[in-house]
Amino acid sequence: MRPGLAAILIGLLAFAFASAPAGAVNPDEILDDPVLEERARDLSAGLRCLVCQNQSIDSSNAELARDLRLLVRERLVKGDSDDEIRAYVVARYGDFVLLRPPLKPETYFLWFGPVLILALGALGVAFYLRRRPAAAVGGPKPLDQGERARLARLLDDKDGSAPKS
């Protein structure tokens, strides 16, 4: 490989890796305490941006997402636990703000629905398979004498010409 091309490739790779984890967090938002900042990043990744709706506030550039990121950090500095911060945001925006829906009676169908549907499908397949052998138990009817004779003739017919009968 020519050195110039290698340099370009390395440059591109470095760019790809450097830009991936940056998200939307601006330098001025980052906390001095790396432990708190880490918690802030984790929390933000699980909170939905209410403007874009399919992005976390950690990766969204929306104004409201930035406000919420700052709010999360402010409360972390004040000594709130992760659960307290989540509860604070949920109290204002509802469960929808959590990218991972909580497990509670309203969401049982969401969480267990797929298992239920799988179980129903398995049940259906089980019924189908249990019924089918019953029809197949007799198996194909044995050949009668005429058919056996014809089969023997066909097997003996080595020259491959069409059978006469």
């Binding site: 209410l50 403007v51 409201l64 406000d67 709010l71 204002r92 925006y93 509802g94």
Partner: peptide, 13 residues
């Protein structure tokens, strides 16, 4: 000014 009251009201836009 900083949108904090809006957040308390659950304002999304």
């Amino acid at each position: 000014e900083n949108g904090r009251i809006g957040i308390d009201w659950g304002v999304t836009g």
